[in-house]
Amino acid sequence: MSGHGFAASRSTPDEDQTAVAVADHRSVPSRVRGLLLAYLALTKPRVIELLLVATIPVMLLADRGRIDIGLILCTLLGGWLGAASANTLNMVVDADIDQKMKRTERRPLARQAVSRGHALVFGLVLGLASFVVLWLTANLLSALLVMATIAFYVLIYTMVLKRRTWQNVVWGGAAGCMPTLVGWAAVTGSIGWQPLVLFGVIFFWTPPHTWALAMRYKEDYRAAGVPMLPVVATEAQVTRQMVVYTWLTVACTLALIPATGWIYLAVAVAAGLWFLLEVHKLYRDTLRGAEVTPLKIFLKSNEYLAIVFCGLAIDAVVNLPTIGSLF
Rank of each mutant, 00 (worst) to 15 (best):
G3W: 12
A7M: 09
S11I: 09
T12D: 06
D14G: 01
V22G: 13
R26L: 07
R26H: 12
P29F: 07
R33F: 01
L35F: 05
L37T: 09
A38R: 00
T43I: 13
R46A: 12
R46H: 14
R46E: 04
V47D: 00
L50N: 06
L51Y: 04
L52M: 12
V53D: 06
L61M: 15
A62S: 14
L71E: 03
L76C: 11
L77S: 10
A86W: 03
N87I: 05
N87T: 10
T88Q: 03
I97P: 00
D98K: 08
K102S: 09
E105C: 06
P108E: 05
A110G: 09
S115V: 00
H118K: 13
H118L: 11
A119G: 01
L124C: 11
A129M: 12
V132T: 14
W135F: 14
A148C: 12
V154S: 05
Y157K: 06
L161R: 06
K162Y: 05
R164T: 14
W166R: 01
A174Y: 04
G176Y: 08
T180G: 01
V182F: 07
W184E: 00
W184G: 00
I191L: 10
I202S: 02
W205T: 03
T210I: 11
M215L: 13
V226R: 02
P227R: 07
E235F: 06
Y245Q: 03
V250G: 01
A255I: 12
P258T: 02
A268Y: 05
A270V: 10
F275S: 02
L276S: 01
L287C: 13
A290G: 04
V292W: 10
L295K: 14
K300H: 15
Y304P: 00
A313R: 04
V318T: 11
V318I: 15
L320G: 15
L320Y: 15
I323D: 08
I323N: 04
S325A: 15
